[in-house]
Design a protein around this nucleic acid. Structure first.
Lengths: 351, 351
DNA sequence: AAAATTTTGATGCACGTGCCTCAAAATCGT
DNA sequence: ACGATTTTGAGGCACGTGCATCAAAATTTT
């Protein structure tokens, strides 16, 4: 298998379209027609050119091509303006990626929206035209309005990508993790970390309206029921992002259930519930698992107040979205292995 | 309302060096001298140009620059020819990445070497000159010969990068994980997964000569001793890659120690020890943890014969090495956040 | 065989930057 | 004010590809 130990040709220049033309015995114009799939070339001529491509191992020089086309990309991330720490991380990585990708003629911008106002989102998407924007990554709950708006966007030639969350029909186009599997992963760790012979698990979400939380809950319950039947899961508590409400519902639940041995925080904003729990007087050996790496959760992991984090790499999410938007708008395929977003498990030793 | 959200400049072309020259009130030649750090420009003129760069938000168009320079990169991965499954994955990703990076004028090749013959490695490195090769990623045990060869390589202007393993002095240049932390992570999971009140843990390596295994062992023992003192770790068993020897040492150890509750396989080739263990008649509830994702370990995770895997993403390793080699040979800095190789934890639900 | 049509060739400009040369201008030292 | 030196300007070619245009050649249709 050691094909090319020493390079066959130390200074072999990469073949160009000129070489292709020479080898195929045609003109550069014809090579161009074949390479760019234009009409009006006899099929045998096409065959001659593709044979030359194979023979020389020609690969189009993207730098030159992009330069010639003068093509640049403008992508917009449509994100909730909520402002939890996870979103802050995403924003940071969008700006960071923006600088890196700038030399590839890619601009990435952020459009904050009210995630609970479908009309506003649809309205914004309706203003986008192919001239202005090449692609949109959308993080918003799936609603009929949004779905329609995305369909119309695609018809107008602007590609759209569901980002991180909350959209089901997207199928394999989603940039983000499988939340059901994430819930299963949390449950497996929870079940194996808990040594008590029996007990109850507190499950906390920001809101169960969101598809993310629903799917995580589904996966979580499935694994707990199937594999850890000595544990029982309590009904989901919803904080709605309010410290006060969190305090009320959590305290009520802890008083009602004396045998809590685990806490699972499903929302990406773990700060509020965890702070409330810290003030509650629970036995110390409770196993707690949360989602997403933020300054707060990272610190909690270090000092032991969290046992594990289920995360997705925000930088990877952002870069993957950008690469896939570019591929979409160029009608290319992306290397799937690179774009799969992993469900990461963080404990104190591999932060 | 969302009208105001429209991008401030719908059709603003990216500023070019021409624009810089115009705004700075100098010629394009001078802009060029400043951009490329050439001598003989008054400091106030430099200041004028940098001010214009800031004002316009100029970013060098890398496509055009690379095209103009006609620069292309040739990188060589120096890898053991051993051929375990983990290495196969690495090879696959090198070839895959080779195709992707080809359009960026980057060639990646593989040079198999005898990892236990320092002279052969040093000899090969000695044949490399800047004309042939722009960078080398080396996966081999650290020896004085190799260290010398790498130093001389650097002096000749070929940059070298330790890849994945086995080199200590490399410092922050290593492409790979912190093996001590990886061992700690394995230990933490081991300790928390084991519910028995006491017991012994079998530790298996291919060879304790390799720095990887030493460091993993160090981290593993530290956490077990500090946090799970009800467990004891047995001396490392070495398989030397031989099924026969593995069988002998493992069977001897299991007969000598009746209370084995966990198995930790440190080497990247987990197949042999795990197959041997499967044939041994051990109690079923043993917790076993291994390293690296291969077809074998992935399958073992799925069918429950392994409880967790500590891995590093081979695709990420390869791409990161290539990006860092390019940055090194261009004297640029890489975005550190993207290049950090994560210690991943895989369980059955997040494969 | 002539006309209509399809296919191909030849050629040139453009993209933005790197790099080169040569002369003009500014600055310095005396 | 002089020559010597440093700094700047002007201009052009090159990289490899995309995209035109127009004419020439090959092929098909009438």
């Amino acid at each position: 298998m050691q094909k090319s130990l020493r390079p066959s040709t130390p200074n072999m220049a990469r073949p160009t379209t000129k070489d292709l033309a020479r080898v195929a015995g045609v003109s550069r114009a014809t090579v161009d027609r074949v390479l760019n799939g234009r009409e009006g070339v006899k099929s045998e001529t096409v065959e001659k050119v593709t044979a030359a491509i194979r023979e020389l191992g020609f690969v189009r020089n993207l730098s030159a091509a992009n330069l010639a086309k003068g093509k640049s990309y403008r992508f917009i991330f449509v994100l909730p303006r909520s402002g939890d720490q996870f979103l802050d991380e995403i924003l940071r990585h969008i700006h960071e990626a923006g600088e890196v990708f700038a030399s590839d003629m890619i601009w990435a911008e952020v459009q904050p929206i009210d995630e609970n106002d479908p009309h506003q989102i649809a309205g914004f998407l309706a203003t986008l035209s192919p001239g202005d924007v090449d692609g949109v990554a959308i993080m918003a709950p799936e609603t009929p309005q949004l779905r329609d708006a995305m369909t119309r966007l695609a018809e107008r030639g602007v590609c759209a990508l569901p980002f991180i969350s909350n959209q089901a029909l997207s199928g394999d186009n989603l940039v983000g993790i499988d939340n059901r599997a994430a819930g299963k992963t949390a449950a497996t760790l929870m079940g194996r970390f808990i040594h008590a012979p029996r007990g109850q698990i507190l499950v906390i979400a920001e809101s169960m309206q969101s598809r993310d939380s629903l799917e995580r809950r589904l996966g979580f319950d499935q694994v707990i029921n199937d594999s850890f039947s000595h544990l029982t899961t309590l009904p989901s508590l919803e904080t709605y992002g309010s410290t006060e409400r969190a305090e009320r519902v959590i305290n009520a639940a802890t008083q009602l259930n004396p045998d809590i041995v685990g806490v699972y925080v499903m929302s990406s904003e773990a700060r509020i519930p965890l702070e409330v729990l810290a003030r509650a007087d629970l036995p110390q050996q409770i196993v707690s698992i949360a989602h997403e790496r933020t300054p707060f959760t990272e610190n909690a992991l270090r000092n032991g107040s969290i046992d594990a984090l289920i995360t997705q790499d925000p930088g990877h999410l952002v870069r993957s979205a950008i690469r896939r938007l570019r591929a979409l708008s160029d009608n290319l395929t992306t290397s799937t292995s690179q774009e799969k977003i992993r469900i990461e498990v963080l404990i104190a030793t591999n932060i």
